[in-house]
Structure formats: structure tokens, C-alpha cells
Write a protein that binds this DNA or RNA. Structure first.
Length: 271
DNA sequence: AGAGGTACCTGGCAGC
DNA sequence: TGCTGCCAGGTACCTC
């Protein structure tokens, strides 16, 4: 489900309800997620105050004085604030109950998500340690991506979706950024010139910022921390638009698939 | 080392 | 109506 804009939207939705609040109880109804929820997690978070809610790549980080709760939404996960006592549905796997009566509820039908614990700083955790730069930060730039891509024969779209190259870009925004930059998704990463890499970096930053501004993309089931959908899906220019006319030239948008992922592009505008 | 495929899991939907 | 097969926003891990 969620890529960086959806995770950031979630963070902004839940943070005001969590920061400074004390956890009363962690209720785990289903511990079999991507990795088993650590049995000691409850003892690590209960009775402690949440100091801040941050994000690295698609990981949400809830820090307390002892360490950090790392949450990943996987493909179908979402977080929502509910009132205590709200009856859980079949996929509401975890509740983080606060002393103030509110409750952070984790829903994840496919169970690809994760709830993990680490002693701070979280960036040292093995899942986060080797991630590429944050795409909206200054250390993600044309020079860096140009250097990193030299000699790489992998398709630029797959290259962008590699979290060790740049963090947080999934299938939707890889497609959208490449369209905005006029680059064919199958082009070898190492065969794109410096100038076009610069255009691509700017397109990535633009599309992510635009999406965050609209609360992310809701295709099927993404809801923000308040249970509301995003609106960026109406701004998608190629994703899920196979056969529809290109917004720039009218050529039908083409769909191909590599591995299990769909790729959408305009055969005329993207070279 | 790099590239490509597989696995994890469930729900929704098209097609028969 | 009901079954089957395929599709989905992620990513670690496996093999070649």
C-alpha cells in the first residue's frame, strides 16, 4: 500500500495524538506479521511516554526514553486513532492504548507490516542502517544519483525502487516521476546523462511533495491517521491509466510488467 | 557484485 | 451463484 507520501501523511495524522502521551497497554491480537512481534515489546513501551514520532523511508519511529518502536505498514497496513472500546475488526492486529483514553490501532489484512523494537538510535537498526538518502532531503541530489547509477544496467524504474539507492519510492511514484521527467522506465540507469538525472531528481521531489500536500494516494484502502483517504490519485498521470490518453500528447498509456510489478508510461513522451 | 525471481498473506474482482 | 486465477501500494532473501 503505502509509499513515502502515505507514510508521511500517516505520521502527520497520528503524531499530534501521540507525542508526549503515556502508553498504558499494548494489545497484540495477531503477532504473526512480516516478522513476529517481539514478545518483550509490550514491556518496552508500556508505562512510558512517547517522545516523538518520526519517519525514515517507509518506517515510522515512535521513540520513548528506552528506545524506539519501529512500525512498517507493508503493502496493506494502516494506522488510525480510535476511541478506547471501539470493537476491533478481523484485521485490527495491534492496539497501542494511551493513558488518556485514545488508542492507536494497526490494521493490516495482508500482514506484510512489522512492529519491531530497537534501542536508540533507530537509524542503527539493521533494517535502516543501509538505506539510501531521504528523497526530500538535500543529500538526495543529481550528483549523488548520477554517481550511484554509473555502470548499472538495471532499468531506471527498478533502480529507483531500490531502497538502498533512495528510500521510500515505490511503484506508483517511480512511474509518476519517470513520466514527469520524460524518461523511459526500462532505460538502463547507467545510460542516463547527468542533465536528465538532474531532471529526474527534481521530478521525484516534486511528485512526492505534491502527493504529501494532497494527503497521499488512496487506490483501494489507504486511510490516514484520522481514517480519511488521500486525494493524490486524481493527480496520477500514468499509474493505472493503461490505454488512457497521455495528458501531454494523447498517445495511449502503455502497460508492461517486470517481475510482479506493473509499469505505466507514455511511449512517445518517455525515451 | 549485480540482476532477476520468489516468498510472505489476504481480499477483491474478472472471467468462466 | 460459485469457483479459479490473477492482481495489489513492500522488501528480504535466494539463485544465477
Amino acid at each position: 500500500m503505502p509509499e513515502l507520501p502515505e507514510v508521511e501523511t500517516t505520521r502527520r495524522g497520528i503524531a499530534p495524538h501521540l507525542v508526549g502521551e503515556r502508553v498504558q497497554k499494548l494489545v497484540v491480537r495477531q503477532s504473526r506479521l512480516r516478522w513476529p512481534v517481539p514478545p518483550e515489546l509490550a514491556a518496552r513501551v508500556e508505562k512510558r511516554r512517547i517522545l516523538d514520532v518520526s519517519r525514515r523511508a517507509k518506517y515510522l519511529l515512535l521513540r520513548n526514553p528506552q528506545g524506539t518502536l519501529i512500525i512498517h505498514l507493508g503493502m496493506s497496513g494502516s494506522l488510525c486513532m480510535v476511541e478506547r472500546g471501539t470493537a476491533p475488526g478481523p484485521h485490527d492486529h495491534i492496539d497501542l492504548r494511551l493513558v488518556n483514553g485514545k488508542c492507536l490501532r494497526f490494521t493490516d489484512p495482508r500482514r506484510f507490516g512489522a512492529w519491531l523494537w530497537t534501542r536508540q538510535p533507530a537509524t542503527q537498526h539493521e533494517l535502516l542502517r543501509n538505506l539510501g538518502p531521504e528523497p526530500l532531503e538535500d543529500d538526495f541530489n543529481a550528483d549523488g544519483l548520477f554517481e550511484r547509477s554509473r555502470g548499472r544496467r538495471v532499468a531506471i524504474k527498478n533502480f529507483l525502487m531500490n531502497s538502498h539507492v533512495v528510500a521510500g519510492i515505490g511503484n506508483i511514484y517511480a512511474n509518476e516521476a519517470l513520466f514527469r521527467a520524460g524518461i523511459h522506465p526500462g532505460r538502463a540507469a547507467g545510460r542516463i546523462g547527468r542533465q536528465r538525472i538532474g531532471t529526474l531528481v527534481a521530478a521525484i521531489k516534486d511528485v512526492l511533495r505534491d502527493s504529501i500536500r494532497q494527503g497521499g494516494t488512496t487506490l483501494r484502502d489507504f486511510l490516514n491517521g484520522e481514517g480519511k483517504p488521500g486525494y493524490f490519485q486524481q493527480s496520477l498521470l500514468v499509474y493505472a491509466r493503461a490505454g488512457d490518453p497521455c495528458t501531454a500528447c494523447g498517445t495511449p498509456i502503455r502497460e508492461t510488467r517486470t517481475g510482479q510489478r506493473s509499469t505505466f508510461y507514455c511511449p512517445r513522451c518517455q525515451r
